[in-house]
């Protein structure tokens, strides 16, 4: 790892000010992606701005029919939150599948979303539940947020502060884990929302995406039988040593049905 100038931020405003003043800074949330990236010398920031002391970026609450999770909330705390378990149990279940206990004790929802790893779990939940991402500058709809591999709508220096998940009537998450890394080869989050049932997939493409074919067949139903014969094209899906695009296309249907209890 190349050395950098380490700074600690005391508030959101302090963090963005420090980021702006530095030549080429990165925010440090849990560090579960940033530190491995730095160790491999894939990135060389001049400054790292640590958010560990920003206490108003931590917490889970219910506001106006939505579960609001602040950006520095750890996966462990989402997994074990009584509020999340009672209102959106699928989201708590998803959080409990990320990495391993040590990663869940450190990794944060804001860090995961800002990174937009093709195989990250949270993006599927954000897209399926039509969540809103709040930053220090604006709000961004889930459908506009994920733009490609490791690419989001965030501008340089823009900081996620919280994510607001409208509570769905029903929701489910199932993934097919890579046997070694446990990252989803394909993960499916299905949510019955007031605007119909939404299906979002992670692990299969450059970033999380919705499946219009499934959503059309489902309408507002939460019924695995309705998509049993709906095929998904393998065009544009990932192929790697773990799975071909065709296999991932097959898994998308299987995981989406399992997410609905099928």
């Amino acid at each position: 790892m190349y050395d950098f100038n380490y700074q600690r931020a005391s508030s959101v405003a302090d963090a963005t000010t420090k980021h702006k003043a530095a030549e080429d800074a990165r925010f440090l949330a849990g560090g579960m992606t940033l530190l491995p990236v730095l160790k491999q010398r894939l990135d060389q920031p001049s400054d790292v701005v640590d958010l560990a002391d920003v206490k108003d970026l931590v917490g889970i609450s219910e506001e106006n029919g939505a579960i609001v999770i602040k950006a520095m909330t750890k996966h462990h705390d989402v997994e074990h939150s009584d509020l999340v378990k009672s209102k959106i149990p699928a989201l708590a279940e998803l959080a409990g599948t990320i990495g391993d206990p040590m990663v869940r004790n450190r990794g944060t929802i804001g860090g995961s979303l800002a990174n937009s790893d093709p195989a990250a779990s949270y993006p599927s939940a954000v897209l399926a539940m039509n969540a809103t991402i709040h930053t220090d500058q604006r709000t961004i709809a889930a459908d506009d947020f994920f733009q490609g591999m490791f690419t989001t709508a965030l501008e340089p220096g823009e900081l996620i502060t919280k994510v607001s998940f409208p509570i769905p009537t029903k929701a489910g998450y199932k993934h097919f884990p890579n046997p070694a890394s446990r990252f989803p080869i394909v993960g499916a989050f299905v949510a019955q929302t007031k605007d119909g049932t939404r299906v979002a997939i992670t692990g299969a493409g450059p970033c999380a995406f919705r499946v219009p074919e499934f959503e059309k067949a489902l309408g507002s139903a939460f019924d695995p039988a309705k998509i049993k014969d709906v095929k998904v094209s393998a065009d544009g899906l990932n192929t790697d040593i773990h799975a071909s695009a065709e296999y991932r296309a097959h898994l998308i249907n299987v995981m989406a049905r399992r997410a609905m209890g099928g």
Binding site: L28, P36, H76, N105
Partner: peptide, 18 residues
């Protein structure tokens, strides 16, 4: 793996300053 403030974490992926 060590415990930081009572939670198990991987000390190879934490900065000392963190």
């Amino acid at each position: 793996t060590v415990h930081v403030n009572g939670r198990a974490m991987k000390s190879c992926t934490l900065l000392a300053l963190h």
